[in-house]
């Protein structure tokens, strides 16, 4: 990610690299520009296949098309985004690298957006299929709880306190939240299994070839979009981090220049 960037844009952000702000003038690079166009192209292909080429499903009708975005976005946020947050949190706690802290945060933030999207599309699919927006289906219920779980993680990242202590707390939370994700999922599934039979499972239905292509395209499109968003979100966070560090230096420099060495000591007393 960092090696192929053009010199006028991003110079490899890492925990040790403290290069000046002029080297980080845009959050785009050649790689992300290509990634962005690939995302758009795959979304266009997904629209063509998902809405026009693939047939409606026998029992679910047209609403099956929601699955081409619903299931991929669930996979991207629950399996990819929060795993990245987990890994980033572990590495941050071991190495104290700002890079991984910001990666964990960026991934969780975009993950929460995808999770909200998953919930919304799931409910839209539920209305024509189950006749109601909400049922106490295990997946739906546990996804809603997980959504709030990661909103809490994002809230901790915005706490009004020392950035290092905050990052440490966020990292611990990023690790435990991942365990909670699993606990919530299994406990809710177990809870519902005692009370009702399994609900309609999309994986049981036979998929036409063009449906499989649409589903695969959805997975590709949403993964690419996710990667593109996370990289940009990370770079904005990295800029913010550099700006904070730089503001302090500028303030100190201005104070020193205006007061002089003796004046500073007197002013600081």
């Amino acid at each position: 990610m960092t090696t192929e960037m053009s010199p006028e844009s991003v110079s490899g952000p890492s925990s040790t690299d403290q290069s000046g702000p002029e080297s980080f003038s845009t959050t785009a690079s050649k790689v992300t520009t290509v990634l962005g166009w690939l995302s758009l192209a795959s979304i266009a292909a997904l629209l063509a296949f998902g809405l026009l080429i693939s047939p409606p499903e026998i029992s679910q009708g047209e609403s099956v098309r929601l699955f081409y975005i619903h299931v991929p976005s669930a996979i991207v946020c629950l399996y990819i985004a929060f795993s990245i947050t987990f890994v980033g949190s572990v590495i941050y706690l071991r190495k104290q690298s700002v890079f991984w802290d910001l990666v964990a945060g960026a991934s969780a933030e975009v993950g929460v957006v995808f999770l909200g999207f998953t919930l919304a599309t799931g409910m839209l699919w539920g209305k024509p299929t189950w006749g109601t927006y909400w049922t106490w289906d295990p997946r739906l219920t546990s996804t809603a709880v997980s959504f709030v779980l990661y909103l809490g993680y994002l809230a901790v990242r915005r706490l009004d306190m020392d950035p290092v202590a905050r990052s440490k707390r966020a990292a611990i939370l990023g690790i435990i939240s991942f365990a909670n994700l699993i606990i919530i999922r299994y406990s809710v599934a177990w809870w519902r299994s005692l009370h009702q039979g399994t609900t309609l499972d999309p994986r049981d239905t036979q998929l036409d070839d063009s449906m499989l292509v649409s589903f695969f395209l959805g997975l590709v499109a949403l993964s690419l979009t996710f990667a593109w968003l996370v990289i940009h979100r990370f770079r904005v966070a990295w800029l913010e981090h550099q700006l904070e560090a730089q503001q302090l230096e500028v303030a100190i420099a201005e104070r020193t220049a205006s007061a002089g060495p003796t004046g500073l000591a007197a002013g600081g007393a």
């Binding site: 709880v145 809490g152 901790v156 939370l173 919530i184």
Partner: peptide, 13 residues
């Protein structure tokens, strides 16, 4: 305000 938001989803199970 933060602690209820953090702890309630965790205690849901």
């Amino acid at each position: 305000t933060l602690v209820p938001l953090l702890v309630l989803p965790v205690l849901a199970p």
